[in-house]
Design a protein around this nucleic acid. Sequence first.
DNA 1: CAACTACATTACCATCTGGTCATGCAGTTA
DNA 2: TAACTGCATGACCAGATGGTAATGTAGTTG
Lengths: 127, 127
Amino acid sequence: MISMCNSLPTVDHHGILMPHSLPPEILDQIAERFRVLAEPARLRILNVLLAGERTVSELVEETGLNQANVSKHLGLLRNSSFVDRRKEGLYAYYSVSDPSVGVLCEIMCGRLEEQAAEQAALLGTGS
Amino acid sequence: MISMCNSLPTVDHHGILMPHSLPPEILDQIAERFRVLAEPARLRILNVLLAGERTVSELVEETGLNQANVSKHLGLLRNSSFVDRRKEGLYAYYSVSDPSVGVLCEIMCGRLEEQAAEQAALLGTGS
DNA sequence: CAACTACATTACCATCTGGTCATGCAGTTA
DNA sequence: TAACTGCATGACCAGATGGTAATGTAGTTG
């Protein structure tokens, strides 16, 4: 049940992974989730949280953002189920609840390196 | 050379994939790329292009967006190296040049299903 | 209870962004 | 060359978004 896009992806003649034409409604939800990750401040927060659970104050220290800002971003991340919150006394402990966050960043980062390499190769042969 | 984040990811005690603390500069670039994907219109375009090369007019037809809008989005996608352009006579043929696009959407879609399943499970036991 | 702490929330602003219309431009055809 | 086509670009506007300061709130400590 509930499988609009979990059918196995196929590979076209160019070797590109091809999801089976996702319906617009699903694409909207995917875009929404990309949007949450499309912010340097939130990525910094997630990057810290990937190393382990943190309180808001700790995140403020480690990211350099101010408290209101961190809380705002954490609220967004929590609404999108990217992070979890555990309250204990005065403190709120946040942690990454979506294991795909690390993978997504790794993939993006990998592409950045590929592009940098291509750029370097072009400069190398072009001069 | 050029490896700021290509070191093998480790796994913490919670089993979450953990990239080794990416530097802010890299996080900014990753966010930038997420931002390009964080738009339903662009995802619709990419979703069509994943099925194969298309002209701008074909994309206009298949996405329902108007021509100026499609061209604008294609320009953005091209600047970020998500798509390639091949000009032939009056036509401009676009195609997906970044193989990770499909994978990223698959991962996001997978999480949507997981969340939907969790939600369904909660509703099932909760009533 | 009063003061304090950690965090959430609100209001506000500057900025950015997507959609649209109009226009520009290169290539084709008659 | 004139008219047409496919596409890109610029100008403009409405709506959304991030940063910040101020305030609210729950929990702790004296």
